[in-house]
Design a protein around this nucleic acid. Structure first.
Lengths: 196, 196
DNA sequence: TGGATGACAGTTATTGAAATCTGTCAGCTG
DNA sequence: CAGCTGACAGATTTCAATAACTGTCATCCA
């Protein structure tokens, strides 16, 4: 099909896989499809990724990392922690919502991994909570937040906002009124975090 | 099988259906099975319930109402609102968790209805948030909580605790550490609710 | 000789025919 | 006559045969 006779690299395979996944979805996409899209035999794909699951994970990791990077910018700046927290949560919500809407098939792939409890999703979650912890800790140090254990507080905030980022709630993200629900939850959490 | 030749009542059909559902699960249970269990023809079942979906909904409603009643006792007493809120949330969590563990098939039926967006689940959720609103309002009136809009605050609390009662999170309810997560979230929410 | 290939074994998905199920209703029965 | 029955049409599910896929590896080529 596109026998672009460059050398076959892991990166090129990931790109092709993402495309195939986007077109066919996780249930129908096969590694034979990926090989066909690259104009090689499927044996060559297995030289770079031990299993189909590993390939799926690698694609999802790349996809997830793009969100993480955008967020880490917010987590790392030095504005007031409360505003940063609000921004970070809102950006996370909107990123997930956009991905669910625009890339439904890749989002479905992400969901498959979530159910399979793969390491990639675990690492993604760990990364996100680490970023949140950083914000909460900054707030605690600045005296804005009362958080004796910033990591535990960050996890609580992450769990409490699950409705707005956990893939199993994706079908509720386009309902009218979610915006208000989101704001109400974040307001409540921020008040709970503030120093007396 | 058990042709208990009493008159065929909606109640008896519901009991039989619950049993069939418990044994076969929502995917395999048929109304022919229900009829067989009652020793009648399936046409008789259709005299009492217009469709299979209606039957499923009615069974789930009964099942859900049992939890609601236990909770309404807590919502209605007149202890301090903060303790009541904590009790209510914990009882809800434990009831859902117990049902998911002990009645996996009926729980799966509940999940089917959740996805189908049936009225029964909507009513159940409305009932629960109404109970929560009652508690929050009591707290606002007593001056314990700062909640200008008790209903909105109750919804926020309900959404923020979704991880501990929404069926799509059921698989996480037996993980070690959920207890602590639950406590951390509830503590944070209660602090957010308290009057300054 | 490093990388690609395609045939192969074992497993999983697809297909279409047969069986079962849902929902209706004319007629039976007590 | 109120309530139950069982035959029926159309939709859905099951099942077994067939096809496709995953992962391996002896072989090939540049």
């Amino acid at each position: 099909m596109a026998p672009t006779s460059e050398t076959l690299t892991a990166e090129r395979i990931l790109e092709a896989t993402e495309e195939v996944l986007r077109r066919h979805g996780p249930a129908k996409a096969t590694v034979v499809d990926v090989a066909r899209a690259l104009g090689v035999s499927h044996g060559s794909v297995y030289r770079h990724f031990r299993t189909k699951a590993a390939l799926r994970e690698a694609v999802t990791k790349r996809w997830l990392d793009r969100t993480s990077e955008a967020l880490s910018g917010i987590a790392a700046d030095d504005r007031d922690p409360e505003g940063r927290l609000r921004d970070w949560l809102r950006t996370l919500f909107e990123a997930k919502r956009r991905k669910a809407g625009l890339d439904p098939e890749l989002f479905a792939t992400y969901r498959v991994l979530t159910d399979e409890n793969g390491t990639v999703v675990g690492e993604h979650l760990a990364d996100l909570t680490a970023q949140l912890t950083r914000i909460v800790r900054a707030g605690a140090e600045a005296g804005t937040f009362a958080a004796p254990d910033p990591e535990a507080a960050a996890r609580a905030v992450f769990h409490a906002t699950g409705r707005f980022h956990d893939p199993c709630h994706a079908h509720e993200w386009e309902r009218p009124g979610v915006e208000e629900e989101f704001t109400a939850v974040v307001d409540l959490l921020v008040r709970g975090l503030r120093a007396p």
